[in-house]
Amino acid sequence: MTKGSQLTLVLVLLGLFALFYQGLWGDPRHIPTVLIGTDAPMVEGPDVETGDLISLNQFKGKVILLNFWASWCYECKVEHESVLQLHKLFKDDPNFVMLGVNYQDKLPDAQQYLKEYGTTFAHMRDLHGQLAIDYGVYGVPETFVIDQQGKIRYKYVGPVTGHMYTKITQEIIAPLLKGKPISTPS
């Protein structure tokens, strides 16, 4: 075995070792989703505040922003103001709709949360976690953007604040509402 091939072998082994080691500590929430470009599941659930059935089917043909949240989730509170701001920015566009999905929560807690922090859009309850699993959710908050053709175009795990707010509003929702392609799929 020559010195060169020995060095190559050492490098390959070190590379593999580093890859596996990194995998041990990686956060699965940051694994790229397989859902981009697929049909958005047409989920439905009762409205947190009124109990009326909300179905995604009602909003076909619109750009939909789905925001998964829970009253016990700290990061959801962190992003709440930004989420309300985002709705304010696009609510007058007839082709935009925003829905909250209340995840793994108790109804009184969810209602109290909305009363306390305020809301300007509807929220459906995920009664048995089926909605979250349909959307491959790991935890909350998670945000999905669905285009007018009903395809999932963007997913973000974490609070929609700061540069993520700018990215989602300017680089994702605004172009989709204009029927333009988006440059950053996920």
């Binding site: 976690g129 979250a132 699993i133 935890g139």
Partner: peptide
């Protein structure tokens, strides 16, 4: 975990 429990339900 609650998510695992829900997945078993599914």
């Amino acid at each position: 975990a609650p998510l695992a429990q829900q997945m078993r339900g599914v």
